[in-house]
């Protein structure tokens, strides 16, 4: 059985309505734009998938990627740390109109909740958010004289990630700071779909250079010249 998918449309074809989806990237760095746009294409053609819960650090920029999913009306809820960025009108309008739900999570807690899910750790204690409104309703406990807040793991049905080099075994590397949330999300979803800029045979990536081992990746699809979110936003592209 191969992990290689012939196209981004095939790679995302199984994602159902109501799915919880992690999307890698931080801003445009490491964002799997082509997988996201394939989901939008499918929604426009079939009305599905809809009512999605998305997990990302942000809530989209401009009129492409996650922002375009929100504008298209596919997203019911965002779980993120920083929805308020310079070109986040798509999310802002829906949120202020009460048409999209938001779970706001501090950035380091978001990363650790995802890591914990991938590592089989159902909960952990962190100093982050103790004494703030984001800790309301969460258990807290003192360890060695300091207070900590209990946080739960965060899982997903699917993860969409962007690698740089990938191989047919699902091993991945990342380009520059495009790593960010991608390796964590790849571990935390039932089904991880990776777009990679270069797809090779097993052995094409030196074992010591692998960052995400293939055990965490279910589907690999090559997108040889990926678009860069920042350039799309700057040139005013509307997807």
């Amino acid at each position: 059985m191969t992990k290689v998918s012939p196209s981004v449309a095939d790679a995302i074809a199984d994602i159902p309505d109501g799915a919880q989806i992690m999307i890698g990237g931080f801003g445009g760095s490491g964002a799997p734009i082509e997988l996201i746009h394939a989901l939008i294409d499918r929604f426009r053609a079939t009305g599905s998938p809809s009512n999605l819960t998305l997990i990302n650090n942000n809530a989209g920029n401009g009129s492409i990627g996650i922002a375009a999913m929100i504008k298209a009306g596919m997203v019911g809820k965002m779980i993120c740390s920083f929805p308020r960025s310079s070109n986040a009108e798509a999310f802002n309008e829906k949120y202020l109109a009460g048409e999209i739900a938001l779970e706001l999570v501090p950035q380091g807690t978001l990363a650790e909740r995802i890591r914990a899910a991938g590592a089989g750790i159902p909960a952990f204690y962190t100093p982050t958010s103790f004494g703030t409104e984001l800790a309301e309703g969460k258990p807290s406990e003192e360890f060695d004289g300091k207070m900590y807040v209990r946080e739960r793991w965060l899982k997903a049905d699917f993860a969409l990630v962007k690698g740089h080099d990938g191989d047919e075994a699902g091993n991945l590397t990342y380009r520059l700071a495009g790593r960010n949330f991608n390796p964590l999300m790849a571990m935390a979803a039932d089904r991880t779909i990776a777009q990679v800029s270069n797809l090779g045979a097993p052995g094409s990536i030196a074992p010591e250079a692998v960052i995400t081992p293939g055990i965490f990746v279910d589907v690999v699809v090559e997108v040889s010249e990926p678009q860069q979110e920042e350039m799309l936003v700057r040139t005013g592209v509307i997807y």
Binding site: F26, G27, G28, S29, G30, N57, S85, S86, Q107, G108, L110, A111, E112, I114, R115, Y174, R175, L176, A177, G178, R179, N180, F181, N182, P183, L184, Q228, E229, E230, M231
Partner: peptide, 23 residues
């Protein structure tokens, strides 16, 4: 634009720089 900081601004690297994931 794969090389940015937390403010989403483009950056450069100094000798000895490293990358790592969010956790």
């Amino acid at each position: 634009w794969d090389l940015i900081n937390a403010g989403k601004k483009a950056i450069t690297l100094n000798p000895g720089a490293s990358f790592f994931h969010h956790a």
